[in-house]
């Protein structure tokens, strides 16, 4: 008989922690026993905050970012450039771009990338919603900031092909060397892109 030494309730808590990204069985066990040892108040606060997030969080009906107000603060902020939309794969990509502080336009979150090998096609993403948005809003530029893997680039290519006839300026973020990186350690693909996209100083 397989006996882990944990009661069914504790085992359930361990299993639930184990579902989280980056949490292995050992970490899940550690977290579960930490919570058991802590005062009840801490467990209640954690449970309440998880529930309140799940209840109050929605997807913004304009940009599809995760938000507690619809439309989200980014879409309603009139100080932001309304004529540029940056298309990203995931909400975390949006957060990374916001942290950089170098972009002040609108966003559109696709919630994934075209991945034929995993059966994910354009219909599974928020691409239709992007076109609807472009039809209704006065947009001058669309930045396709999808990830730099085959799936991300295929998504950018697909959107670019469909947007080609609209006359909207389509751009992609610069590709190449990372800040602080040594040339000698860069791989051929990165170096190739960096040389292709070289610019005057």
């Amino acid at each position: 008989m397989d006996y882990s030494g944990a009661t069914p309730q504790v085992q359930r808590l361990i299993d639930e922690f184990g579902r989280l990204p980056g949490i292995g069985p050992k970490s899940a066990q550690r977290l579960a026993y930490y919570l058991i040892k802590m005062p009840e108040e801490i467990s209640l606060n954690l449970a309440e905050s998880i529930l309140s997030v799940k209840k109050s969080i929605v997807l913004c009906s304009t940009c599809f970012h995760i938000t507690d107000t619809d439309p989200c603060n980014l879409c309603t902020n009139t100080y932001r450039d309304q004529k540029t939309i940056c298309v990203v794969e995931q909400p975390l990509d949006l957060i990374a771009l916001e942290k950089s502080g170098s972009y002040n336009g609108q966003y559109h979150v696709l919630h994934g990338a075209i991945s034929p090998i995993n059966g994910i096609g354009p219909d599974d993403l928020k691409i239709k919603e992007l076109f609807l948005r472009l039809k209704n809003e006065m947009v001058d530029e669309v930045i396709l900031a999808t990830n730099l893997h085959v799936e991300g680039e295929a998504t950018a290519m697909y959107i670019n092909n469909l947007l080609a006839s609209t006359g909207i300026k389509i751009t992609i973020p610069a590709r190449g060397l990372s800040v602080g990186g040594d040339l000698q350690y860069a791989d051929e693909a990165t170096l190739g892109r960096a040389i292709e996209g070289r610019q005057g100083i």
């Binding site: 034929p116 090998i117 085959v150 680039e153 295929a154 290519m157 697909y158 092909n161 791989d187 051929e188 693909a189």
Partner: peptide
């Protein structure tokens, strides 16, 4: 170490779809 990254395939959706179908 990359020997060939098949860039032409990856920059054309039709070719890419055929390449990925072959690999699947």
């Amino acid at each position: 170490e990359i020997i060939d990254s098949f860039q032409t395939i990856k920059s054309n959706l039709t070719l890419l779809s055929k390449g990925l179908f072959s690999s699947e």
